[in-house]
Design a protein around this nucleic acid. Structure first.
Lengths: 151, 151
DNA sequence: TCGATTTATATGATTTTTCATATTTTCAGC
DNA sequence: GCTGAAAATATGAAAAATCATATAAATCGA
């Protein structure tokens, strides 16, 4: 008994399993993203914009799971780098719409393709039953959490 | 069609579902942790140490999903605050064992109790089938990711 | 048992992230 | 059409995280 192993709580704790799964499942792809010269938050922005170009900063922040002020600065940098442009919303002058540039779109589409491939590989490493269930379970969890009575 | 909604990729992407689930499922409890005067990484350290007191920094970092140098500084702060103490390992002088103080242990045990309660509530908000499956699916995913041939 | 390698931790410098709050614009009710 | 509240974004200052690397101890092989 060289290394006393209790590990009774953390390892079985739902929030740990979620954090660890997310972290570890993403690690490889995030390396790929960085190899392509992007930081992870930037990749998230690109992915959101491929789905729906011209999102406003606030929504981009919510979807990308980060704070608004941080998103403002990330958009700054991506703008400076020529991946996106800021466009004033004509109806509501408070809003800033973020649009992909041609370069941004190319990069985004290439990475989405890579992401899909990676996801397929990941799912195929799971048993069929697990692969079939995982997304549904997570979506259900997210739905439940969205309800105001959540907890 | 006021807000053009495509949302074809991100919302259904496994790595997004994992990150979002983790983020959102944890949000409430993390607020609780902060209300108790701890930052999230500190709570993670306490939770690990309740399971297995005297872990070394490196292992603590791996389990808490963070970098070693970051963990060194977090342990510094927790030490300064009286939650843990550093103990030199007698067999291997490179190692630093992190031990809970009495105060640290009290806080840790209280929070673990809260965490378990919170987890129970969370799981009971899911349908029985989902609740029964979620941990298993995540554990399987983690197992697969641990294998060297992972992807 | 010496030297090269690996492992564990620490630290300086830089970059990110956060927090609080300012600014600007819209909206709701009167 | 005013006024106060709410929403969207930006920004300065502070705290935290990262990256590269230093230091020190253990281990492995010839």
């Amino acid at each position: 008994m060289s290394e006393t192993q209790n590990d009774t709580f953390v390892t079985g704790y739902l929030l740990y399993l979620l954090a660890a799964s997310s972290e570890q499942a993403s690690a490889q792809f995030h390396d790929h993203v960085r190899a392509r010269g992007l930081r992870v938050p930037e990749w998230r922005v690109l992915a959101c914009l491929v789905d729906n170009d011209g999102m406003m900063i606030t929504r981009l922040a919510r979807l990308s799971l980060m704070e608004q002020s941080r998103m403002t600065r990330i958009v700054d940098q991506m703008d400076a780098r020529g991946l996106v442009t800021r466009v004033a919303d004509s109806n509501d002058k408070r809003r800033v719409r973020v649009r992909l540039t041609a370069e941004g779109r190319d990069l985004a589409e290439a990475l989405v393709k890579d992401a899909r491939r990676h996801e397929t590989r990941l799912l195929s490493a799971l048993a069929d039953t697990d692969a079939a269930r995982i997304k549904g379970v997570l979506r259900t969890l997210l739905d439940v959490l969205d309800r105001p009575d959540a907890t």
